[in-house]
């Protein structure tokens, strides 16, 4: 041992990786199971498609509105529902990794903690876009019309929302410390009020006053209104801006909380 060798050179180590590389590595890892088995995407589509197929006709029957108009109102809601269900439960994958032990392995790897969270959240975009397109395409033969620029902007807002909501789901997985029942309890408790108070299934305008107040502070309602405006081709609607802001807020809040949770992970 000579004194001229600095400690860092004594043991060979792989080259340091950048934050962007770390995020890309995590995204790649998280996407592989889906790419290997794309049919798993259908799983989280089952519930929303049932709503479309079974609740949709009831909606048409009770409102006396034409099918096309009802679909134009209802399908954006189904898209938001897909995002809620799909990304809301994604934390269970992390929870499984935490309980199995593979999460611990990634904590010992030279990856930045925030990359572990952000990579997982960004990955949500891919299944969400695929699912969103499936829902839209399923609805088209029944008279649902799409404006292409509206679709593109609509999917961008949906993606932003999915990243944020996914990050919140991961935050929950980190917070429950291995108690799976707690994860699902919070998940169910939060999901349905958010869903109903967004005006996804029935308009909130006809609800009692307290409900309107609750709906006004539900960011998902703004995302939904933006989607409705966009699919109607109304790109200049103020609702679009509202949805963009709401989705961005959810993304920022989700990533901040999630990254803090991941930094504390042991």
């Amino acid at each position: 041992m000579t004194d001229t060798i600095s400690p860092s050179e004594k043991f060979i180590a792989p080259k340091p990786t950048s934050f962007v590389t770390d995020v890309a590595s995590v995204v790649a890892r998280e996407l592989r199971p889906t790419l290997r088995d794309p049919f798993s995407l259908i799983f989280s589509l089952v519930q929303p498609l049932f709503f479309l197929g079974l609740f949709g006709p009831l909606l048409v029957a009770t409102t006396d509105a034409p099918v096309e108009a009802t679909l134009q109102w209802f399908v954006p809601g189904i898209l938001v529902m897909v995002a809620l269900f799909g990304t809301g439960s994604t934390g269970s994958n992390l929870l499984d990794d935490i309980m199995v032990g593979s999460h611990e392995r990634t904590l010992v790897a030279p990856l930045s903690r925030s990359a572990l969270l952000i990579g997982r959240a960004l990955k949500e975009v891919v299944p969400l876009m695929a699912q969103g397109l499936i829902v839209v395409l399923v609805a088209v033969p029944f008279g649902f019309t799409i404006s292409i620029p509206g679709l593109i902007v609509g999917l961008i807002i949906l993606a932003l929302f999915g990243i944020g909501f996914g990050a919140l789901s991961y935050s929950l997985a980190l917070a429950v410390e291995g108690r799976e029942w707690m994860f699902w309890l919070v998940h169910q408790t939060v999901l349905f009020p958010l869903l109903i108070l967004s005006g996804m299934l029935l308009p909130i305008d006809d609800g009692p006053g307290w409900m309107k107040v609750a709906a006004a502070i539900n960011p998902i309602g703004y995302v939904l209104e933006a989607e409705r405006a966009l699919f109607a081709g109304d790109l200049a609607s103020p609702a679009v801006l509202g949805g963009l802001v709401a989705a961005s807020v959810i993304t920022i809040v989700g990533l901040v909380i999630g990254t803090r949770g991941m930094r504390r992970a042991r």
């Binding site: 990786t17 890892r29 592989r32 990794d97 593979s102 611990e104 030279p110």
Partner: peptide, 22 residues
């Protein structure tokens, strides 16, 4: 406990691990 995730394939998990270490 286990180092590999249940939903991953053996080779995929090793590929990810290689990427994690640059």
């Amino acid at each position: 406990r286990s180092s590999a995730s249940n939903s991953q394939r053996v080779r995929d998990e090793l590929r990810s691990q290689g990427a994690f270490y640059g």
